[in-house]
Amino acid sequence: MKSADLLTDAFTRVQESVHSAVEGLSVDDLHVRLDEGANSITWLVWHLTRIQDDHVSDAFGVEQVWFSQDWASRFDLPFERGATGYGHSSKQVASVKVDSPELLLDYHDAVHERSVEFIRGLDARSLDRIVDEAWSPPVTLGVRLISVIADDLQHVGQAAFVRGSLERRQSGTRTGRLPG
């Protein structure tokens, strides 16, 4: 198996997990925060997708899907258009709202498609290319992509946890075990 195949598989697992966390939920469910300082599923999926879009686009020297396909206008969020959610306050987290689950999923799918398009053309040597010299040691493309995957998986896991909590509340079941 080639490096590009492994990376494609990892990003595809993220995409599948995003769909599992979001599909079938109401807009109200997507916006629920388990407490006043917690992140909603909407914010978690939007944020992980923004980070993927931002970091992958930067690594390949292209405009973010957020701008090139005008997702910024479609989401119409009440803060700077280029925001990714990094460092957001509780008030900003609460302001990330969508009118439908499809908006989140469609944006994620567009970013996934773009990411996989770039990754398919990689070979092991290209993963050694330096993409960020602001760190010591400088960050290679391979390290950047693994970092994005790790961040995505953490956030989509949090979204799945919120979904499971909501489903247990709605069913009245409190088993102390996570679903699945």
Rank of each mutant, 00 (worst) to 15 (best):
S26Y: 07
L178P: 10
F79V: 05
F11A: 05
T84I: 05
D35V: 08
Y86H: 10
T8D: 07
D109L: 09
P179G: 11
G142S: 10
L7H: 02
A21E: 04
L44K: 00
K91V: 10
F67Y: 11
A159F: 01
S90M: 13
R74Y: 03
L44F: 01
E117L: 13
A83P: 05
R33Q: 13
I119A: 02
R33K: 13
G176E: 06
G121N: 09
L77M: 10
F79D: 07
W43E: 00
P137E: 08
E23D: 14
I51N: 07
F118M: 11
T12E: 15
S165Y: 09
A38E: 08
T42M: 02
Q64F: 06
I41C: 04
F60D: 05
V131I: 12
A94L: 06
P101Q: 04
R169I: 09
A59C: 14
V22L: 05
A134H: 10
T173D: 10
Q154T: 15
V22H: 00
R177P: 06
A124L: 13
A72F: 10
V96R: 00
V22W: 00
L141G: 00
G82V: 07
V45W: 00
L7S: 02
Q52Y: 02
H55C: 09
S57I: 08
H47D: 04
H55N: 10
E102A: 14
S171T: 14
A159Q: 02
Q52S: 05
A83T: 10
Q92N: 12
A134D: 12
N39Y: 01
S136V: 07
I41K: 01
D28C: 05
S17E: 08
V116C: 08
D152N: 15
L145M: 10
L166W: 03
S89D: 08
A83I: 08
G180P: 12
P179L: 11
A38Y: 07
F11D: 04
V62W: 07
V32L: 11
L103N: 07
V65Y: 01
R33N: 08
V148M: 04
